[in-house]
Design a protein around this nucleic acid. Structure first.
Length: 568
RNA sequence: UGGGGAAUGGUGUAACGGCAGCACUACGGACUCUGACUCCGUCAGUCUAGGUUCAAAUCCUAGUUCCCCAGCCA
């Protein structure tokens, strides 16, 4: 029995309400201690971070309690679902680190059983064929405050219903001409109970069953029974299905079959992003992003291409908790989980985003040398590498100011700084374009005694900056990403506008003259780096070519200097 | 105005009649060959009004606010 929190995987002190429910079930032997969940996506779109919450919950709970989690595609609507999505969903779940073994199921696997069950309900007088049009059905349904009215077809005989249903299935009737409905209660205050449609006629080819069927079960008719067939113990879903639970219960009880317990939790909302398949589609269709896997998209594919790791996403899903309150998580929580993971795994390297040339006047013209740099200062096991140094270097434009404010610890005329892993240098001169006045290069002298970065005389410098040897640098494309929207809630728009007005025009900045140290010239696509003092970068697997890596900025490092500047 | 849910610092989330805790954010400080990491600290919360109780975030009553439901979508 896993009811003792101290020896389960979840021995973190606080347990969310679903864990508590399962603990209670186990304590009372409700399912004989069995825990079997499922993740039930509809294959009509790509997975996003919101799905990740559900995936982590369902697979996580199963793992925690020594149970199982099925993957089941809810493919009851042939007009919307495609094989491509199935492949992509499976790929994403696997990437997130979860395994459904051989339990890959489809609601369409159960079409025959569902049909038999429908016949059973007809025989019991609990379902009938209705000839109302969609529009008439709506009118008969009533409103939130007024009861509906019975369909004129509600009292057909069992024989007639059986015959009609059979003929619906045989393809005798056109789309939309008839439905099979459950006979429940047109006056129910819960609209889902007002004789819900169980089957609709859809002469459409299904991605798995082909043309075997021309009637397709509604989600409500298929979902609970699918869980029942799979002997799911805890059917976890989002809040909006709470209103449907009485209907699932009704179906299961009417059929007299195994009855899973449905539990609803709040879906994930994140600041600075939208979270619906419909809106993602709009962004893609309108060309606001490059595609479903655009690194600014909160799709699993997008996050992955941005450089997120499965570990970071899983940590995030644990951190945010599970509850019934409809909340919006600050993206900083996600970013913090990311940094925590990347800080440990990403080897360090030096790269210059916006190069400014530096000439070391007292360094020999034709000389080069190799200096040792740690791949991870906090983890010696990651080893070190040699970086080339020479007379001409690039540094970050931001790391030089001609008229530095107080507390600017970087390069400025007369100011000495450390070039990381190299030498102390002092700025001696600034060269400007005579017409524009723009700084084109700066001159320094170096102190040969500080080789490696320390002064034998014990003198200190306030600043250490990164650099790349001009002669050895590799030119690369670097893509800087920022929030897709500039408002915390992108749906907060003026009257008559849509969420596009909140798009952040600076969410993507492409730098074509980035300079990286030579070792990065053949960086493996799909690998992570920390560019020191800048952030974490990911070698884009999609656009990198051999010898020409493209770096996506996954996220910046925390930057207290930038904050300080902002305040002044 | 019917029904179903939910309200705890800026944002999330615990506490299940007994000291309101944790994380993120923000703000200070220490450390530093990354203005990073790490460490220390500060600000800040029980939706409202009554009631029960020695004791209420927790129980009761009334109210307020927010979310979901009128697809032959899921």
């Amino acid at each position: 029995m896993k009811s003792d929190p101290s020896n389960s995987a979840s021995n973190s002190q606080s347990r969310h309400f679903i864990q508590q429910m399962i603990d209670t079930d186990n304590a009372t032997a409700k399912h004989a201690g069995r825990v079997h969940t499922r993740f039930p996506p509809e294959p009509n779109g790509y997975l996003h971070i919101g799905h990740a919450k559900s995936i982590c919950l369902n697979f996580g709970l199963a793992a925690e309690y020594g149970g199982l989690c099925n993957l089941r595609f809810d493919d009851t609507n042939p007009t919307k679902e495609e094989q491509e999505y199935i492949d992509s969903i499976k790929n994403d779940i696997r990437w997130l680190g979860f395994d459904w073994g051989d339990r890959e199921y489809y609601a369409s696997d159960y079409f025959e059983q569902l049909y038999q069950w429908a016949v059973q309900l007809i025989r019991a007088g609990q379902a009938y064929v209705c000839d109302l049009t969609a529009e008439d059905t709506r009118e008969h349904r009533g409103t939130l405050t007024e009861p509906g009215t019975n369909s004129p077809y509600r009292d057909r005989t069992v024989e007639e219903n059986l015959d009609l249903f059979e003929r619906m299935n045989a393809g005798e009737f056109p789309n939309g001409s008839r439905t099979l409905r459950a006979k429940i209660d047109m006056a129910s205050p819960n609209l889902n109970m007002r004789d819900p449609v169980m089957y609709r006629i859809l002469h459409a080819s299904h991605h798995r069953t082909g043309d075997a069927w021309c009637i397709y079960p509604m989600y409500d008719w298929a979902h609970g029974q699918s869980d029942s067939i799979e002997r799911i113990t805890h059917s976890i879903c989002t809040l909006e299905f709470e209103n449907h639970r009485p209907l699932y219960d009704w179906y299961l009880d009417a059929l007299g079959v195994y009855h899973p317990q449905q539990i609803e939790f709040a879906r994930l909302n994140l600041t600075y992003t939208v979270m619906s398949k419909r809106k993602f589609l709009l962004l893609v269709k309108e060309g606001k992003v490059e595609g479903w896997d655009d690194p600014r998209m909160p799709t699993i594919q997008g996050l992955r291409r941005r450089g997120y790791t499965p570990e970071a996403i899983r940590a995030f899903c644990t951190a945010i908790g599970v509850a019934k309150f409809n909340s919006t998580i600050d993206v900083s929580v996600l970013e913090e989980c990311l940094r925590e993971d990347l800080n440990e795994r990403a080897p360090r390297a030096m790269a210059v985003l916006r190069p400014l040339k530096v000439v070391i006047d007292n360094y020999p013209e034709d000389e080069d040398e190799l200096l040792e740099a740690a791949n991870h200062p906090l983890n010696p096991a990651m080893g070190s590498r040699q970086v080339a140094f020479s007379r001409e270097l690039y540094i970050e434009r931001d790391d030089f100011m001609e008229l530095p404010p107080k507390k600017f610890f970087r390069l400025a005329p007369g100011q000495e700084v450390r070039l990381r892993y190299a030498y102390f240098v002092t700025c001696t001169d600034v060269v400007k374009d005579p017409t524009t006045g723009a700084i084109t290069e700066i001159h320094c002298t170096y102190d040969p005694d500080t080789r490696g970065g320390n002064a034998p005389d014990g003198r200190k410098v306030k600043g250490t900056i990164h650099w790349v040897s001009a002669k050895h640098a590799v030119d690369v494309e670097i893509r800087l990403y920022d929030h897709l929207f500039r408002k915390e809630n992108p749906d907060d728009v003026p009257d008559g506008e849509d969420f596009f007005v909140n798009l952040n025009p600076n969410s993507l900045e492409i730098l074509l003259d980035g300079k990286v140290e030579a070792s990065l010239g053949d960086a493996e696509p799909g690998s992570h780096y920390q560019f020191e003092r800048l952030g974490y970068f990911y070698v884009d697997p999609k656009t990198s070519t051999p010898g020409r890596p493209v770096f996506n900025r996954t996220t910046t490092l925390r930057d207290t200097w930038a904050k300080l500047k902002e305040k002044n």
